[in-house]
Design a protein around this nucleic acid. Structure first.
Length: 287
DNA sequence: AGCACA
């Protein structure tokens, strides 16, 4: 990941100030010193992001941690509060290794308001059900709080409702309904594996529900008008949609930032095609 | 692993 990409993750966050990446040296850079001495050396990129307030940093951490940053490489984010504040120069990121009177905002307290993000790997394989507008939330510990789940999913774009029911002797089961399959798919991509406070054995597991919330089990007698959601025909196994909507969503702002930060900013518009027109990114950004 | 409600 490039530093600029990293910084772009935050550009839609109101109180974001600066971010920088610490990329481990690629071995042969002049200094004959090989890091074999300290076993603590990790070949892992670490990023720091600074916010105007500590609360903002904590909120961003809560939103970002567990998020998937690279689906292909199965990279998820681990975000935690940094031990020290990031030094900044005029709002731009820098590795102020020295003293630099931490300009920008008076950190009047010594409490850090940035957080660190190590990039780590994880695995994921779910969804054996045909795509639909409802996600099944799995791997919920017994003491899972409904409110925490609701707090998580209400931030996802296209969220409609959540159905949570405790089970007598096991973890609760939970379903989340979205406006349509595209939103459900996007939420699954972004939130699958997301840890919650009660998580012990990994984060939540998301998959398409066997049957969509609120839709009665299909009775095979009436073959004609039985599409599961709205007017969308369900094609066997593949995503029936609507790449247009997803594409629009991922253009402005970038997918990860858009859905979740979008709510923080109060802009929960559906990413319709009307949005994509004026905001098409330059070819340099995408292609 | 883990699928309820109408």
């Amino acid at each position: 990941m490039q530093e600029r990409e990293f910084q772009n993750m935050f550009t839609f966050y109101p109180d974001f100030e600066a971010a920088t990446l610490k990329i481990p040296m690629s071995g042969s850079t002049s200094d004959g010193e090989e890091p074999a001495a300290s076993s603590a050396v990790r070949k892992q990129i670490i990023g720091f992001a600074k916010f105007r307030t500590r609360a903002a940093a904590q909120e961003a951490r809560n939103i970002l941690t567990g998020r998937k940053v690279d689906a292909e490489k199965n990279c998820i984010l681990k975000a935690e509060m940094a031990k020290k504040n990031l030094h900044t120069k005029r709002g731009l990121a820098s590795n102020g290794a020295g003293v630099a009177s931490s300009a920008g905002f008076p950190a009047s307290s010594s409490v850090p308001n940035g957080f660190a993000i190590p990039l780590t790997r994880s695995v994921n394989s779910n969804d054996q059900n045909p795509p639909c507008n409802t996600l099944y939330v799995g791997n919920l510990p017994m003491n899972t709080a409904e409110e925490e789940l609701r707090g998580l999913f209400t931030q996802a774009l296209g969220y409609k409702r959540l159905c949570f029911r405790p089970k007598p002797n096991a973890g609760p089961i939970c379903f989340v309904e979205f406006e349509d399959v595209a939103y459900a798919t996007q939420a699954m991509r972004e939130l699958d594996g997301h840890p919650i406070s009660s998580s012990t054995n990994g984060g939540i597991r998301l998959s398409f529900s066997k049957n969509p919330l609120g839709v009665r089990q299909a009775t095979p007698t009436n073959t004609t008008s039985l599409n599961m959601m709205g007017s969308l025909p369900v094609l066997g196994g593949s995503y029936p949609l609507n790449l247009a909507a997803l594409k629009a969503a991922s253009h402005t702002p970038p997918p990860s930032a858009s859905s979740l930060f979008g709510s923080s900013l109060g802009s929960r518009h559906a990413p319709g095609l009307d949005h994509s027109l004026g905001l098409e990114p330059t070819s340099a950004a995408i292609h």
